[in-house]
Amino acid sequence: MDKGSFEVKVGLAEMLKGGVIMDVTTSEQAKIAEEAGAVAVMALERIPADIRAHGGIARMSNPKVIKEIQNIVSIPVMAKCRIGHFAEAQILEALKVDFIDESEVLTPADEENHIWKYDFKVPFVCGCLDLGEALRRIGEGAALIRTKGEAGSGNIVEAVRHMRRVQSEIKKLSIMSNDELMAEAKRLGAPFEIVQKVSKTGKLPVPNFAAGGVATPADASLMMQLGAESVFVGSGIFKSDDPAPRARAIVLATTYYDNPLKLSEISAGLKDAMKGLDIAEIPEKERLANRGW
C-alpha cells in the first residue's frame, strides 16, 4: 500500500475540479458552505479581508478552529500555513487536514525558501503570479496550483492578470522547439524537466485553480472561461450581504460557467457583493500577491 504518493495527491486535486472551495472561520459557516455545495472548505481564523484590516502577523489557524470544522463537515478540509513554515505544515499534517495551502495570505516565515513539499503525505496547493512561479512550486512538490489574485480585495483584476499570464506562457511554450526550451527555462526560472513536460502536453502537470478576488457568480464564470479548473472563494461569500444564496450561486456558476442565460438566472436576486478594493488603493507593500517568488 502506497500512501502520500504524488499520484494520490494530484488525485484529490482532480476530484475537486469543477467545484468551489470556500473560506470559513466557524463551524456554522462550514455548514453553510457544505450545504451550498462546496467541494471543500478552507478553515481559517480570519478571512483575508479581515486579515488585511486587522494588520499584524497572520499565522496558521488555531488547531481548535480546524478540528471543530473537521468535525462538522464531511467534505475535505484545507488549512493555510505560512510560506516556508514547515513546522506549521507538520502540525496541519498531524491534524490530518486534506490539503495545505502554503499561502501568501499569511505573513511569510521564510523570504527565500518555500516548503519542500515532498516531505509530506498531505498534498499542497500554492499560489502563482506567472508560469515560472507555478513550475517552481510544482518542482517542490505542489499537487495543485492556484492564481494568487489579490486576496481579500473582492477585486478580480489580479486573478485575471495571473491566469492570463500563466495561460499565455503555456501557449508560448507549447509552440517552442526543443532548442528554445533551455533558454525559456532560464527566463522563467523554472525546472527544465517540467518546462519540457509543459511544452509537450500544453498544460500544467497538476490542476490549475483560480483564487484571490472572486466575489460574484460572473467572476467564477470569468475565471473558468479563462482556463481555471475550479474556484477558491475567500472573503467573497462571508463578507457579502447574503452568504448562503451567494455560495449556492457561485457553485452553480462554476458548473454552468459557459451558459450566460443560466448565469443571469443564477445571479438574479442576490444582494450586494462585498464592497471590495481598487488595487491602486492598496499600497505596494501591502499587496499579498508580492509575497513568495
Binding site: M1, D2, K3, G4, S5, E7, V8, G11, L12, P76, E93, K96, V97, D98, F99, K121, V122, P123
Partner: peptide, 23 residues
Amino acid sequence: GRQVESFTQKVVLSFDKNPFPGV
C-alpha cells in the same frame, strides 16, 4: 480516513489475470 490515508494498491480482478492499479 482523510486524504493522508489515500493510497494506491493493486486490485485482483475476477475477469482478468493481471491485477489493476487501484487509486
